[in-house]
Design a protein around this nucleic acid. Structure first.
Length: 521
DNA sequence: TACAGAGTTGTGTGC
DNA sequence: AGCACACAACTCTGT
């Protein structure tokens, strides 16, 4: 039988390791590679200009790769449930393929689309290739609930075995007998819009340090995999959050959009490791991919994962509603140069080191400002090129000690932490030029510099750079007590003040049971 | 059921 | 420089 296939790109913006695309090409006469500009995202999330640019670059790269196979990318605006039925009819579609995505919106969207496809007699082929594993399988192997620690997660994976090997990109050979019916005015009808076409203000675009697209992703992967000794030695906690050149691979935006397959990355690492002594999870590069998989699993298996309320694993905390503090954090004017430099890099460049994320996340939540992690989550979602629903929610819960991580008395110092890897504050000077002439001994706490030194440096604290909005020493001690109270509420104590855990355990299990039953239905 | 042990990446002090 | 320790005492997993 000869099919007319749509391959619907959502994440997975690549040709390599794209099993759903390969499935679309089987016994196929006409292939329509499709990307939808779904208004749901603009209506429900805030996406910054740098992220939008990354997406458009990735689409352009995809189109250029498809051109080499005598095909083209079709870009259409509108809700999938409205656009797809029209295209099914217009293009006489018999088959729809796409990559599985586990985010809640994707799940409900795809469920609706599959119903519609049935009505139009369109065969649907979903394939797993965004994650290393089938997430359902991991949860099943762990008795129906997601593993809640990295070690137990690893134990489950031991039973499953290594991830599947990536599938090669389609070749001209695979395209024999397959064509894409595109017309001469393809650009007008189905072309990739520019940022201006989308009516976006491009005045705040930052430098294009990490251009989107599969070709750039594979180039970047090659570049790093050639450094075999570095790859084998890699230990995430030993990399610097405040180096001028990123100390890690910065492949995360590419993996987020699926320009790079996690499985391709995984097996390339395996090749580099082979026969050599190398670091191990959780700190190795394999370990980083497993962290991603870990949070994809918990995000899929835990209800209301991006919220505090209704999230059975999240400690319920009485965070302050403090718009002034939130704005100061978001706009890089907390008065702590280390924090403000990181927030500036985030806004301008769209990527900050994982430990930089730790520092600013701890500062916003349990460390200093006592503002809900959900607020921080929104800011990261807007500004991070690699903002990924599952990882963003999971890591914010981790850093705010709301879930996964409970040692809330371990607080990052906005002054001391950065000094470990950047004694002289070069990173701060790069992102906060007003502090450029400040002597190193005061660069992390400019308010302590004598007036004469501030004058000589041409930067008066309170005028040219803000005073610190909180006294870290005071506020972090207070916040540890507040965290203690939040945990005590969740975990009732006996008369000696010792925590009784069994009652809570039963409560959490029962909520999970309910969720499991719901999921089975 | 109870308990021991561990937990990706804290800070400050002292040797 | 690098390590041990106190700080105070959290939760999850496995036995």
């Amino acid at each position: 039988m000869s099919h007319n296939s749509i391959h619907w790109f959502r994440k997975g913006l690549r040709l390599h390791d794209n099993p759903a695309l390969i499935a679309a090409l089987k016994d196929c006469r006409h292939i329509y590679p499709l990307f939808l500009l779904d208004p749901w995202y603009s209506n429900n999330t805030c996406i910054g200009i740098n992220r939008r640019r990354f997406l458009i670059e990735a689409l352009r790269d995809l189109d250029s790769s498809l051109k080499k196979l005598n095909s083209r990318l079709f870009v259409v605006s509108g809700p999938p449930t409205e656009v797809l039925p029209k295209l099914f009819e217009e293009w006489k579609i018999t088959r729809l393929t796409f990559e599985v995505d586990t985010e809640p919106y994707s799940q409900s969207r795809d469920e609706e689309v599959m119903k519609l496809a049935k009505e139009y007699d369109v065969e649907v082929i979903p394939k797993i290739s965004h994650t290393l594993y089938n997430i359902d399988r991991i949860i099943e192997e762990n008795k129906g609930k997601p593993p809640m620690t990295y070690v137990s997660f690893q134990n489950v994976l031991k039973d499953i075995g290594p991830p599947k090997k990536p599938v090669p990109a389609p070749t001209k050979e695979d395209m024999k007998g397959v064509s894409t019916p595109f017309s001469e005015d393809h650009e007008e009808e189905f072309g990739i819009p520019t940022l201006e076409d989308l009516g976006l203000d491009t005045s705040s675009l930052g430098p294009d340090l990490f251009p989107g697209g599969e070709q750039e992703a594979l180039r970047r992967l090659d570049e790093h995999m050639q450094r075999a000794a570095w790859v084998c030695k890699f230990e995430k906690p030993q990399t610097s959050p405040n180096s001028i050149i990123p100390s890690t691979t910065v492949l995360s935006p590419y993996i987020r959009f699926g320009c790079l397959s996690a499985r391709t990355f995984w097996w390339r690492l395996t090749d580099v490791y082979r026969g050599k002594k190398h670091s191990e999870p959780p700190v190795s590069l394999h370990g980083q991919l497993l962290w991603r998989e870990f949070f994809y699993t918990t995000a899929y298996g835990i209800p209301n994962f991006n919220r505090m309320e209704g999230n059975p694993h999240c400690v319920q905390v009485d965070w302050d509603n403090n718009p002034e503090y939130l704005a100061a954090w978001k706009e890089a004017r907390t008065g702590f140069p280390f924090i403000d430099a990181i927030m500036t890099q985030l806004r301008q460049e769209g990527w900050i080191h994982h430990l930089g994320r730790h520092a600013v996340a701890c500062f916003l939540t349990r460390g200093d400002l006592w503002i809900s992690w959900e607020e921080g989550q929104k800011v990261f979602e807007e500004l991070l090129l690699d903002a990924d629903w599952s990882l963003n929610a999971g890591n914010w819960q981790w850093l705010s000690a709301s879930a996964f991580f409970q040692q809330y008395f371990r607080v990052y110092s906005p002054i001391a932490f950065g000094k470990k890897t950047d004694k002289y504050g070069d990173y701060i000077k790069k992102y906060l030029p007003m502090l450029n002439k400040f002597p190193a001994e005061y660069i992390y706490e400019p308010w302590k510099a004598p007036r004469s030194i501030q004058e000589r440096a041409g930067c008066i604290v309170g005028k040219d750079y803000p005073r610190p909005i909180v006294d870290h020493e005071v506020v972090h001690k207070k916040n540890i007590q507040r965290m203690k109270a939040a945990y005590a509420k969740r975990s009732p104590q006996d008369k000696d003040g010792k925590t009784i855990t069994k009652g809570v355990k039963r409560k959490v299990t029962s909520i999970l049971d309910m969720f499991e039953k719901k999921a089975k239905r």
